[in-house]
Structures are given as C-alpha cells and as structure tokens.
Design a binder for these strands. Structure first.
Lengths: 205, 205
DNA sequence: TCGTGTATAGTCCAAATGGACTAATCGAGA
DNA sequence: TCTCGATTAGTCCATTTGGACTATACACGA
C-alpha cells in the first residue's frame, strides 16, 4: 500500500468529508451528495460509492459502527470517520490546492478547504495564483508564437479558449484572495451560524 | 453493440482524427499526441491507447492495413481510418459541441470542429451560447438565494468560482462567434496554407 | 569498448467506473 | 382496495483506466 492519502479519489475525499458531519450509511451519502448537487463535480453512482466506501474501510480511514435494520428493508451498514481519515482529507487538500492540472481534484479541495486554517489556505492559494499567472503567460506567448509561424487560426480555437479560462481562473482567484484576507470573511466552523446548521440537519431527512 | 458513435471516448475520437491525416501505428499516435500536447486534454498512456485502438477496430471504425517490421524491433501494426470512422467523428462532434456538462468532450469537439461546415458549427455553438447564458443566470440566482438564506460564504467558494468560469466561458464563446462569423476567419481544409502542412509533416518524424 | 541510459513498440494486470439488476416497502391515485 | 410507480439499500459485472513491466536497439560518454 503506497501512501494512504495518495490513493484517495475525489469521491473518496467527499465521502470522508461527509462523515465529518456524522455517522452515515452509503445510501444516505448518495442522497445527500445528490441533494447538495455534489454530483456536479464528480459522478455519484451506486457502484462507485459502495466501492469507494469499502476501499476507505480497507485503508482504515473509516470504520463500520453498526448494522441497522429498519422493518424488513435491506440492512444498512453505518460508517464513521476514523482519526486517520480526517487527517488524510486535510493532507489531500493541502496537496491539491496549489495544483493546476487536476481540475476535478481542485474543485473538491476548494469545497473542503474550510477545515484548514485560514492562513494556510491563503498561503496555498497564493502559490496557486503564481502558477496560474505563469501558465497564463506561457499560454499567451505560445499562441503568439504559433500565429507568428502562420498557424491557421482554426487550429488554435481550443487553445484560445483554454487561455481565456485560465485568465478568468487567475482573476477570480486574485479577487477571492482579497476577500479571504479580510476579517469580514467568515472562516472556521466555530463561527458558523447555528441556524444554518439546523437547516442542513433538516435537509438530511 | 449500442450506437457506434455513442460509445466513443474522447481518446477514441482523437485517434480517429489522427488517422484522418494518414495511416499510423499506435505508438506513433502516442508520440504525435504528446508532441502536440494533446495530453493536456486527455491522458495518453500506453494501456489506454492500445486498448482504444483495438476497440475502434472491433467497431469497424478503423482497419489494420499491414504489419511492418523495422530491423529486429517489435512489429508495428499500422491502421487506417474506415469510412464509418470519419462519419462517426463528425456525428460525435455534432452531438458534443452544444453540451455543457462534458468539459473534456467539449474540448476535443472544439479541436476537431474544423471538419464540419462553418455554418453548422456556428449553429451548434449558438445553441451552446444560449445554454451557457441560462446556466450562468441560474448559477447567479442560486448564489443570491443561498446568501439570502444566510448560508455562510465559506461554503459557497467553489460555487462562486464555477460561476465565474461559466461567465468567462460564455463571454469567450460570444466573442469567438463574432470572429467565426467573419469571412476573414479561415475555415475548411482547402484554404489551409501548404507551408503549414509541410511543417506539420516535418514534425512527425 | 563497455556500460548506461533512453527511445521504440507493445503486453499485461490490478483497480476504478458506470450502469444494469434485485428486492422489498411505501405512497397515491383509480 | 388494488395496483403502479417511486424510493430505499445494495450487489454484480463488463468496460475503462493507468501504470508497471518486457525486450530490443541505438547514442554517447567514460
């Protein structure tokens, strides 16, 4: 077994993150993710979720805490987050936040970044911002060089779009870093509004 | 076997597109794609490419045209595009160009769109533009509603970024459609500069 | 000239993915 | 009250994927 945290898939991280909110059985995870539209980011299918949960258990990141049975329905195996699991998510987020070429992983990392200290997130994202600026410039100069070499524009369409998206990503991050630097921006679970937590709890049923 | 063109993976489409330029053996495809940085878009590994080629042959989209041997090196099996293969790419591109939630597929479709008529591409992309505008507005109003419901900003970071990227994608496409509508924008292989083709040929060695 | 690394061409396999399938229960309308 | 469909909870399997491995040939420096 390589590293525990290296083998984590995006879906695995989302499962671990869900278990931070409490014990759960796989089917409930699926419902919750769909309800929160987490399936915009990664595909949430039965096969993948059940398989992922089994893998996380083999790796010792989560643990079975009981087999519930309601009426005559199929058994529901409930899982809880293990200590190693929480640590693994945080490590994974630290690793993925600055990385440019894992679009899906980054979205998950960004969504789960609130478990890290604000200052650490700021540092990681500043690294990313620098990488984005470099990538954007590299893209631009590459396009200019290709045009200078008389490459027909019709072959550069996708590259052109990618450059535009890169620039937008950069600009969004720069703006977000300004917002996050301000103490007006809420950060950390202890500051979270109780009313909001109650709402989420209600939505789980 | 479902539809021939429905089961095409992005890599499969890229392989078919490569074979439009001439016969090739899988290893050469890998070299070419890496050289052209097509592996920015999809991961190009040995396992996947050889498997994809085998699948395309089973589906009758490409055909073996000979087993070459150079010195005492391993045999090189060369493939050529079948008629059904060219048609399948075009059909696939038509299907994927307007679709929003397949980011990878869209990049490939955009890169291969130059084989379709300019007017058809314009029509398909105008459909996409409308969908992008709608998705962007939906995103915005969703964010506004969440804020009104006092959702802490820290939970909306990823959504916020996705909205920004969506807006950028929309704006880029709007601008591109203007460019593509103009007759100044080169389109279609018959207009392609010979010098450029010679260059590409040279790069293949 | 003798290794040592890298390019060529491909095979093979463990793991991940997506989707079809099962099977029971509950709700809502005819 | 009966039935049809949706919901709950999960299993199972065929494809796909990524990467490790093989084996030869050539280049190049020590």
């Amino acid at each position: 077994m390589k590293d525990a945290t290296a083998r984590l898939t995006p879906l695995g991280v989302m499962v671990l993150a869900l278990l931070r909110e409490g014990e759960m059985h796989p089917y409930e995870m699926i419902r919750l993710m769909r309800h929160r539209h987490d399936d915009r980011i990664v595909s949430v299918t039965n096969g993948t979720v059940y398989h992922t949960v089994a893998r996380l258990e083999r790796q010792g990141l989560i643990a079975e805490v009981g087999i519930d049975r309601d009426g005559n329905r199929p058994e529901r195996t409930t899982y809880a987050l293990a200590d190693a699991g929480g640590a693994a998510v945080d490590e994974w987020v630290r690793r993925e936040l600055p990385v440019l070429d894992h679009p899906v992983e980054f979205r998950v990392a960004l969504a789960e970044a609130h478990n890290l200290e604000r200052d650490e997130v700021l540092a990681l994202l500043r690294t990313r911002l620098a990488a984005l600026a470099e990538a954007r410039d590299y893209h631009r100069s590459g396009r200019a060089k290709a045009l200078a070499a008389r490459t027909p524009e019709q072959y550069l369409i996708e590259v052109d779009r990618q450059g535009a998206l890169l620039a937008a990503d950069h600009d969004w991050l720069a703006a977000f870093l300004v917002r996050l630097s301000s103490p007006d921006f809420m950060w950390g679970t202890h500051e979270v509004d109780d009313r909001y937590l109650a709402q989420r709890e209600a939505a789980r049923r």
